[in-house]
């Protein structure tokens, strides 16, 4: 498993566990819209960001809490990778 894949898996696991308990993991794909699709609201976005900061040792800024950075698992991975340099 590459770093990228392990990041994806960890993020997906967190989202499934926290926001979609009991749902079929196959329904959540890398490009499933999280914010515009109604899976993440403000509170869950905050929870997700707290998790990402803890798990990956990065720090988010207020203006990054939106669809441009967090709308899909792919975007989240990309955001984290670019923060990690």
């Amino acid at each position: 498993m590459t770093t990228n894949q392990s990041e994806r898996a960890a993020i997906k696991d967190f989202i499934m566990r926290e926001f979609l308990p009991g749902e079929d993991p196959a329904e959540l794909e890398a490009d499933t819209p999280l914010i515009t699709g109604g899976i993440l609201d403000s509170i869950s976005t905050v929870k997700l960001v707290a998790f990402l900061e803890d798990r990956f040792g990065v720090r988010f800024q207020a203006h990054e809490m939106n669809v441009d950075y967090l709308n899909t698992i792919s975007k989240i991975v990309h955001t984290i990778e670019s923060k990690q340099g």
Partner: peptide, 11 residues
């Protein structure tokens, strides 16, 4: 909601 997860569904 912060304490008890609000359930979302994709299906």
């Amino acid at each position: 909601e912060a304490r008890r997860t609000r359930k979302r569904v994709v299906k």
